[in-house]
Design a protein around this nucleic acid. Structure first.
Lengths: 118, 118
DNA sequence: ATAACAATTAAACGATTGCTTAATTGTTGA
DNA sequence: TCAACAATTAAGCAATCGTTTAATTGTTAT
């Protein structure tokens, strides 16, 4: 990307030189994709505040355990949550990482904006 | 949601009483959905920093104008960007609202975390 | 051993999403 | 008036996504 069809804004040309790589946009959008589904967001919200087993998570979000398992897999694959096995159960909670903390903060901020007590 | 299959965590029951309505999760996840697509995120990133016409945006993100028009429609529908018509061209830029400012801030934060100068 | 239960995996599906091509609207300048 | 151009809209399509049902793995208690 070097040539623009029109040139009404000097600012834009300079800006394009600082534009991040496509890969960065892909990574960042993938992070937002993790919380772009209402069910997954609800699960993550829960795990930001407690540690729970799959059955309880499923009951809390009113969804089947395979469905919940699927979402947990995605969140875990992204490193946002961790799991711990104890007996028959697997307990999930938010990962203790900078990325997870940032996502938590971001989620809270948007909940706040949607003006709910939170 | 009142009954949990198991009860290993007192915390959870109390937490569930403070859980936001389903509608809130839907709204918040929809906001993240806006920036969960790499192309749309790239367009929004541009419009956070400049004002441009459709053709220039299309050139900058290397995509057809119908495709860009489609994304602009979604972002505008959500109130994140505004448009201004001048002659044959329509110029888009970030909306001057609290919500748009928050999204901008959030996007910047995640770009930072992906450790790119930004 | 086996029965009960928690969790995951797999296959199938319906719905949504993002892009393409083609047609349409609206504006400017010849 | 007409030709060129910017933008939007519409229809169609492939790919992705989220859920369901069914089967499977693994653990505990009888």
């Amino acid at each position: 990307m070097q040539k623009l069809p029109h040139l009404h804004n000097e600012n834009t040309l300079e800006l394009l030189r600082t534009k991040p790589e496509d890969e960065v946009f892909a990574n960042v959008s993938a992070t937002f994709g993790l919380i772009s589904d209402a069910t997954r967001l609800e699960i993550l919200w829960l795990l930001c505040h407690t540690e729970e087993c799959v059955m309880n998570i499923a009951a809390a979000v009113d969804m089947s355990s395979p469905a919940v398992s699927h979402h947990l897999r995605i969140l875990k694959g992204a490193g946002l949550i961790i799991s711990r096995k104890e007996g028959k159960e697997v307990y999930y909670t938010l990962a203790d990482t900078d990325e997870a903390a940032l996502v938590h903060k971001i989620v809270d901020a948007v909940f706040d904006m949607n003006c709910n007590l939170n």
